[in-house]
Amino acid sequence: MNSARSLVRAIRGPILLITLGTLFAVDYFGSYSFSRTWPILLIVAGALWLLERIAPEGDTGPGSPAGGAA
């Protein structure tokens, strides 16, 4: 089984990727340029990091490698 923490860690990349793409799309088709909206990336990255920290380790016991075995 996977721990909640490893799940958060795994979805961090895709979510950042979506955010990045959205910001560029907003730049091109919306009214806010990327040079103004880039801090959102930092906020999202920070939020995901925070989430990873507070997520419970789940099934994997302390000391066992993160990510857990299936």
């Binding site: 996977n2 490893s6 799940l7 860690r9 795994a10 961090r12 950042l16």
Partner: peptide, 20 residues
Amino acid sequence: RLAEILLWAAQGRELPRAGV
């Protein structure tokens, strides 16, 4: 990628250390 990972998690498969 997100959908893929959520699916894997639901199936109880081993998750990659980093999604990207």
